[in-house]
Design a protein around this nucleic acid. Structure first.
Length: 322
DNA sequence: CGCGTTTGACCTGCGC
DNA sequence: GCGCAGGTCAAACGCG
């Protein structure tokens, strides 16, 4: 029990320093604090992730996002009428370098992946299908040929943390671990333990900066968070002082090739709809609810030009230690 | 005893 | 076709 609380606290702190990215994006913004326990000052700076050309988030953030928007707007299931991208959306390969050429760069319509029309029906019909798939898997996965396995949307973020497995309010069961090439640190695979919920998550440490944990979520929870982190947050002595700023990108389904960057903003009147049928991203809204930007954080970032420079990981580290 | 982790084997996709 | 790397399975094991 205590251990659990302790872990939660640790995690909460860690998560406050998270950087949300999409798996495909190479540029993102790291949040860091001097020490996990006295996280009151946050430096936000870009960081490079992976080795792909950097794109996306910068431009996305540049494109005058409405930072005043509730950070949880995107929690609402994207019932947003899907505007078919004019372009080669359907012809572009899965990898996402294109994602920075959205038809509507500053569109505030959040269409998060599996919720778009067409996908909705798919999701429902998918429940049964999933079970079948599960069965099939066990029987050596006699998969349909010529049909690429549809990857769930992914949502990744970096976290400066000593703890590998961040407690995000959901219950996870580890089902695998693999050594990662070019990294001394293994990658762990987790699955949501809730029945019927196929959300997965991968956790690995950055080989460049071992203090950074990269967590990648895949899929959407079909249920609300079983654990309310609130309690544990309350244990944080100065949780109220958390000016956690986090930027992240909502991944679009790969076939859509469009991503949006969102920044948390201070929003006293959070309007979170957890009664919806889908929960995205795959950590609990209440969990995120504790983390808000300062009222002027967005403009702060802009004013300081923090959205315009790419700072190497090393530098990021240095700044962190200030 | 139930649940979660560990770990080696196996499967799949992809590049050459 | 082959090899590699990523991803998953499932038996064994550990822990509360």
């Amino acid at each position: 029990m205590e251990k659990r609380a302790e872990q939660m606290i640790k995690t909460e702190i860690s998560m406050a320093n998270s950087t949300f990215i999409t798996e495909e994006l190479s540029t993102s913004f790291a949040l860091s604090s001097t020490t996990p326990t006295s996280a009151s000052i946050f430096d936000m700076m870009p960081c490079d992730i992976g080795d792909k050309a950097s794109l996306g988030i910068m431009d996305l953030l540049d494109s005058n996002q409405d930072f005043g928007t509730s950070l949880f707007d995107w929690f609402q299931p994207p019932i947003v009428p899907h505007q078919p991208l004019p372009s080669p959306a359907s012809t572009v390969p899965e990898s996402s370098e294109v994602l920075n050429t959205p038809a509507t760069p500053n569109s505030s319509s959040i269409s998060s992946s599996s919720n778009e029309p067409g996908n909705e029906a798919q999701a429902k019909a998918g429940d049964e299908e999933e079970l079948d798939q599960e069965k099939n898997k066990k029987q050596l996965k006699p998969k349909k040929k010529n049909q690429k396995r549809q990857r769930e949307p992914r949502f990744a973020f970096m976290t400066k943390s000593e703890v590998d497995h961040l407690d995000d309010g959901y219950r996870w069961r580890k089902y695998g671990q693999k050594a990662v090439k070019n990294s001394p640190y293994p990658r762990s695979y987790y699955r949501c333990t809730s029945a019927g919920c196929g959300v997965k998550k991968r956790v690995e440490r950055s080989s460049e900066d071992p203090t950074i944990v990269v967590t990648t979520y895949e899929g959407q929870h079909t249920h609300p968070s079983p654990i309310t982190p609130r309690g544990s947050i309350g244990l944080l002595p100065d949780s109220g002082g958390f000016g956690a700023a986090t930027s992240f990108v909502i991944p679009q389904p790969q076939y859509q090739q469009q991503q949006h960057a969102y920044m948390y903003s201070s929003s006293p009147s959070l309007n979170i709809s957890t009664s919806s049928s889908s929960f995205y991203p795959p950590f609990s809204p209440s969990f995120l609810q504790e983390r808000r930007f300062g009222p002027s954080s967005a403009s702060f970032f802009r004013d300081h030009g923090l959205l315009q420079d790419i700072v190497p990981t090393q530098m990021r580290k240095e700044t962190t230690e200030e």
